[in-house]
């Protein structure tokens, strides 16, 4: 099942499928490790819940929900 990354529950593993963003953002995300077929896990969020930290390729990267909702992940793993 495919959902947007911002809906992935905390500490649940997902598999990145697709980045539905403009070219420039895509470059940035790809180089940060958000590459299709990579496992990703939300690890904690800030107090407003609008910003969450994701563990991807052993690094912790924080994204806002407005950006994370453009990343599609598969949760059936």
């Amino acid at each position: 099942m495919e959902i947007s990354l911002n809906r992935l529950p905390l500490l649940k593993l997902g598999n990145i499928k697709n980045l539905l963003v403009d070219k420039k953002t895509k470059c940035k995300l790809l180089s940060l490790g958000f590459i299709p077929e990579t496992a990703i896990k939300p690890v904690f969020s800030n107090f407003s819940g609008n910003l969450r930290a994701y563990e991807v390729r052993k690094a912790i990267i924080a994204l806002r929900d407005t950006d994370a909702n453009k990343i599609r992940v598969d949760v059936s793993i």
Partner: peptide
Amino acid sequence: IPTSFSLELPP
């Protein structure tokens, strides 16, 4: 509008 934003949290 705010642009996309990413922040690395180092060990």
